[in-house]
Computed example of a mutant assay.
Amino acid sequence: MIPLLDLKAQYASIKSEIDAAVLGVLASGQYTLGDEVASFEREFADYCGVRHAVAVNTGTSALHLSLLAAGIGSGDEVITVPFTFVATASAICYTGARPVFVDVEPQTLTIDPAQVEAKITSRTKAIIPVHLYGQMADMDALSAIAERYGIAIIEDACQAHGAEYKGRRAGSIGLSGCFSFYPGKNLGACGEAGMAVTNDDDQAHAMRMLRDWGQAQRYHHALKGFNYRMDAIQGAILRVKLRHIEDWTERRRAHASRYTGLLEAMADLTTPVETIGRRHVYHVYAIRSRGRDRLRQALAEQGVQSGLHYPIPVHLQQAHADLAYREGDFPVSETAAREVLSLPIYPEMSAPQLEAVVEAMESAYVE
């Protein structure tokens, strides 16, 4: 079986470093926030090219706190896309605001800036572009719109650790950038963790208070806050992994290039495109095929795992039926949901494994 990702292989490659980091935390007695988390915040901020990083327990929490710190609340609207993981919309709803969807671009599957302006109202307070699969959205166009209307950009960079737009790292362009360190991410914890980054001092201060029960000083609660703190063990593990992320990213990019070279001639198959001026970090290598479901079944029969990111757009999820969107409202997202298939890709993947995936693809198309 060729897995979609192999977390055991990653652990094995840096086992001694991870084990030492975890044991160091256990010996320290600092298990929540503490020195390891503070050090990781500084190092991740440097990696992203920003002044502040605020460690939290999940990427969803990073989105939630970024919105709250930006003043988003009940009655407000936030523009985003339906072709994303449901957490993007859920974080908006947590604040009492309403998600307002626009469709994605056909090639990148990131937010289509040409559709954003028509959805802006007096209630619009922010835009959340989702840097999907490891490639950033068109930030120049979005920034121009946000500046024109005086609204914030909160980057959902949960799949885009180290991705770049014209030399600037994901998370460094908007008011805040939000990252998930869920285990399967390009930079993944051994459990749940997240981060919000910003260059805005007030935004950072508010998020630090909100993640820890709204207190800047113990037992002095200035805000209605949350328990969104990062565990120290996760901070220590992520510090180790951050030292390896650029090497891992280049391996992902090499695998993606090899996939594209071997697959691009196959009929009824579209391979991912890295847009000029953007650095794609290939959290997911997502192909598109009108025969997606048949192809996925054929791959499984040959021992190749694949994934669906994402089979049902958020606007068609039962949980968000209250938004009153209907099938047909976002045709690009809906078509992508029927066609996208994620192939195995991870830094430790071997050349023979990758070639076996391609051979399985070719066999599936011949059958």
Rank of each mutant, 00 (worst) to 15 (best):
H255V: 01
R292V: 01
R326A: 15
Q353H: 09
A321C: 10
H283V: 07
R278I: 06
Q297V: 10
V304P: 00
L263K: 05
A337F: 03
A265T: 15
H244Y: 11
V332G: 10
D322G: 12
P344V: 03
E348T: 13
L238F: 04
R294A: 14
W248A: 04
N227A: 10
A286R: 01
H309N: 14
H320T: 09
A337P: 03
P352W: 02
Y282G: 04
I312R: 08
L263C: 14
G307F: 02
Y310M: 12
I345H: 03
M349K: 05
A267N: 14
Y346T: 02
Y259Q: 04
E264F: 10
G307H: 04
R243S: 14
Y346I: 02
E334V: 05
E246F: 09
A267Y: 10
I345W: 02
G261K: 08
V304I: 13
H309Q: 14
Y285C: 07
Y219P: 07
Q318A: 14
P352K: 06
T270E: 15
F226I: 00
V240D: 02
V281K: 02
L263R: 06
E246P: 05
D268M: 10
I287S: 02
R239A: 10
E274A: 12
V284H: 14
H320C: 06
M349S: 03
Y259A: 01
L341G: 01
I312T: 13
P344K: 01
E250K: 13
Y228W: 08
G235L: 01
